[in-house]
């Protein structure tokens, strides 16, 4: 009989056949990742066109429930994964970052589609952020404009593979002394979008002009 819980069990341990359904020999990491990979709750959060394909992926034909991802949570406090599905605009960015900061760890970001990955066809626009990865750490990029539901699911499987490889000791949100590592400072909506982490750079860039003026 094939071992049913292969993802959970460590290889090369021979568990007697009659207790295979009851006993697993594994590590904490494997157990932890196994539980998480099949119950990723996405944030119910759509930005633009890609959100429609995200909904389509939840419906009968594609059925994301097969991956444990059907529980769309409208509140960030209950979500594990944010699918940035659409163009990130400067006006929307503070809201996205606030949502990200409110999500509990472990948390993942998936950039769905060309716009969220790089700005896509709208990159040159004055109100468009050229990719959410300028502000948030992105785990999976899904190409397409918009990606088909199949592509979204391929991305989700990639995310599951990534979760499998993580170790509870090494992931950035559990490392010692790095409790704030996931906090992203809020950008400022001034005359244009100002990245708070680069405030010094902006001050320096503005300074020489003031002297000459």
């Amino acid at each position: 009989m094939e071992n049913k819980y292969e993802g959970l069990n460590l290889p090369n341990y021979n568990i007697p056949e009659d207790i295979q359904n009851a006993v697993s020999i594994t590590t904490i990491d494997r157990l932890y990742n196994w539980g998480r990979r099949w119950s990723v709750w996405p944030l119910m959060f759509g930005l633009a066109c890609c959100a429609i394909e995200m909904i389509a992926a939840q419906t009968a034909r594609y059925d994301m429930a097969r991956f444990g991802m059907e529980v769309m949570r409208p509140t960030p406090r209950q979500a594990d994964m944010m699918i940035v599905s659409g163009t990130v605009t400067k006006k929307m960015l503070p809201a996205i970052i606030r949502l990200y900061n409110q999500m509990p760890e472990p948390k993942y970001v998936v950039a769905m589609g060309a716009c969220a990955s790089s700005g896509g066809p709208f990159k040159e626009g004055y109100n468009v952020v050229a990719g959410i990865d300028k502000f948030l750490p992105v785990d999976v990029y899904i190409p397409g404009c918009p990606p088909t539901p199949q592509a979204l699911m391929a991305g989700m499987i990639k995310l599951q593979e990534k979760i499998d490889k993580q170790s509870i000791k090494k992931v950035r949100w559990y490392e010692k002394g790095k409790a704030d590592a996931n906090y992203v400072p809020m950008p400022i909506l001034g005359p244009d979008l100002i990245d708070a982490r680069r405030a010094d750079e902006f001050k320096a860039a503005a300074a020489p002009k003031q002297e000459t003026a």
């Binding site: 001034g190 979008l193 002009k209």
Partner: peptide, 26 residues
């Protein structure tokens, strides 16, 4: 890349003489 041509290497354009310390967001 468009980023290479921009002084901030990003999609940002600030008016001349802009000062972040004095700026009060609306």
């Amino acid at each position: 890349y468009a980023e290479f041509k921009n002084p901030f290497r990003d999609n940002v354009k600030l008016p001349e003489g802009f000062s972040l310390e004095k700026y009060q967001p609306e």
